[in-house]
Design a protein around this nucleic acid. Structure first.
Lengths: 149, 149
DNA sequence: CTAATTTTAATTGTGCACAATTAAATAGTA
DNA sequence: TACTATTTAATTGTGCACAATTAAAATTAG
């Protein structure tokens, strides 16, 4: 590719990533409206539906988010009675985040979301798996490069 | 795939998108530090280096952003003397965004960024083109679905 | 030509996202 | 033991991102 072409928006892989992520997140909005949560809050619930409780640090490792993002978001979710936050007895530094009864019940309401979202995507399973694989490789590569800077 | 598996973070294509986008954006940070701009501001400059001036609406169409995001960002960039904003004479509703001399000069400093970034990615040209093509298809699909909601 | 409609940005309010700093608890060490 | 270093969250400050509303200008319809 010519040097000038590399400066064109059209040819930038990261712009495609950036734009697609935001448009896909918008598709979640109506599906999450019923639960009254945002997409990042949905990710927190997905993590907790797998394992609850998790410390803020563990949650951050799974979602690639730090306490500066998580702490205020978790406080909002606590106010909505989806989760509870409490200090660990064994290690008072750790704040554990656990599902409430309401947070657990939300899982049933959310069970249809993955399929409803996939209905919006005109891609077959192989394409999606392929895309996910490529993205995960890119993600791990970026994390490697990023961590020693 | 089993219904339960679809609820796992690990299996969600949109989570891969979300995490990868943010990690890639972090890789830009040190490259853009010299220009003293953020990644979204870099996207504005890329658009203007192709065509200047552009109206706020045209810029929004290229970047998939609305005036609620652009207006304050453009004001910050104007304060840094990278761009200028002025009303169109022909249509007073339109605000035109044009490069300043400093904004034009920044293009030379930024010319190395695409290659520097690609150095951080362990993917060949074909893989990248393939990924971009898939993402663009997903993007257009999402925009179609999203617009009538 | 006037009134209703549409287009265009700006504004308001909420919620991430993240770098940098702070503070408390724990672990490691001389 | 006391002293240092590390780990963990919270806090602070800045900058997107977007829905909803507002206001001005231009277009369209009657």
């Amino acid at each position: 590719m010519m040097a000038e072409d590399k400066m064109k928006l059209e040819n930038q892989i990261c712009f495609s990533l950036y734009a697609t992520t935001r448009e896909m997140t918008k598709l979640y909005r109506p599906l999450l409206a019923d639960l009254n949560i945002t997409y990042p809050q949905y990710l927190v619930l997905l993590a907790l539906w797998e394992t609850s409780p998790l410390s803020v640090k563990e949650l951050g490792e799974r979602l690639y988010l730090d306490s500066g993002t998580l702490t205020p978001m978790l406080k909002r979710m606590e106010k909505e009675n989806l989760i509870e936050r409490y200090r660990s007895k064994e290690d008072e530094r750790r704040v554990l985040v656990g599902l409430t009864e309401e947070g657990r019940k939300a899982e049933e309401k959310a069970a249809c979301i993955p399929d409803l979202l996939l209905d919006n995507i005109d891609m077959n399973e192989e394409e999606i798996l392929n895309l996910k694989h490529t993205l995960n490789r890119m993600l791990e590569g970026a994390r490697q490069k990023g961590e020693h800077q």
